[in-house]
């Protein structure tokens, strides 16, 4: 929210980069303390989620049910840590709650639960479905005549789910230009490389063919994320898919491009090393 007040683009970028480092730091700490979770795909999405929550989206943690708010749906629900970090940093709940992730009695479930965690728009975790619910939200908001926008983050492995493409056709049919999908394309899923398991390429062409406006970016360059989201606002009559090329585990050298860190928490010394590496990248926002 504070980022809205920043008018100078370079200052904004630096502000968001620092925020993204903060989210990455929180992700490592919370997954480390939980001793389980999905750090790889949380880190790859950190820059995107940061830009959405701290600049792009209209939302108010003090009035979480504000009907005119923009919505964020984490369709790749296993990246819950990045969402929780963004929600806590935004002020939806106390920061210390993060350290209860995945524990008994914590409102921070292994996958997002809208009935437990303030700020979670819909429960996700079973892949493909969050995307489809986001389409339903965009439709519902348009029915109400609201100008709210819906942002949904999907995974590349998740793109193997059939419902993604059912929902893609429906959204294009209904010209949902208030819907922005973002594909966190890190080319890794639990069993290995997406390209070696069931390749989703040519993925930009696929979305294009399904009637979406496609914008391809480097998902770790805040400036490109900002520009893509701006461009998305100018698109009329079709939904938008931002294909964000990312690196799994981004920001921690020994986690980058390591498939095993899809669903494995760093332990002991790894946690300290990872936190130190993130701190060395620059100040935390």
């Amino acid at each position: 929210m504070a980022a809205r007040a920043i008018t100078d683009k370079q200052t904004l970028i630096e502000y968001l980069e620092a925020k993204a480092r903060r989210l990455r730091w929180d992700i490592i700490k919370m997954v480390g303390l939980a001793r389980s979770g999905h750090p790889g795909g949380s880190l790859s999405a950190a820059d995107i989620v940061t830009t959405l929550f701290f600049h792009e989206m209209r939302h108010n943690p003090d009035d979480k049910d504000w009907p005119d708010r923009d919505r964020f749906v984490l369709s790749k629900g296993h990246a819950a840590p990045v969402l929780y970090a963004a929600l806590a940093e935004s002020g939806y709940f106390p920061k210390e709650d993060l350290w209860t992730l995945r524990k008994m009695d914590s409102h921070l479930q292994g996958h997002p639960d809208m009935r437990k965690t303030p700020g979670v728009e819909i429960s996700t975790g079973s892949l493909g479905m969050g995307f489809s619910t986001a389409v339903g939200m965009a439709l519902g908001l348009r029915l109400d005549g609201r100008d709210s926008r819906v942002y949904t983050l999907i995974g590349d492995g998740e793109s193997q789910e059939g419902i993604i493409w059912e929902a893609a056709m429906f959204a294009a049919q209904h010209k949902l230009d208030n819907l922005v999908g973002i594909l966190d394309y890190n080319d890794m899923q639990i069993d290995g490389l997406v390209s070696e398991i069931v390749d989703i390429q040519p993925v930009a062409d696929k979305w294009s063919a399904f009637g979406w406006r496609v914008i391809e970016i480097d998902g770790h360059k805040v400036e490109q994320i900002l520009d893509a989201l701006d461009e998305a606002r100018s698109v009329k009559g079709k939904p938008i898919m931002i294909v964000a090329n990312t690196i799994k585990g981004k920001g921690v050298s020994f986690m980058e491009r390591v498939v095993d860190f899809h669903g494995k928490a760093p332990t002991g010394e790894e946690i300290d090393k990872a936190l130190a590496e993130i701190e060395e990248l620059g100040p935390l926002g």
């Binding site: 819909i122 479905m129 489809s132 619910t133 339903g136 439709l139 519902g140 029915l143 419902i163 059912e166």
Partner: peptide, 23 residues
Amino acid sequence: FFDCGVAEQNMMAIAAGLATTSK
């Protein structure tokens, strides 16, 4: 009224999304 075509899974998830907007 929204006809989702022959896509029952999508129909259910779309309904869930609509329900979050007080439908």
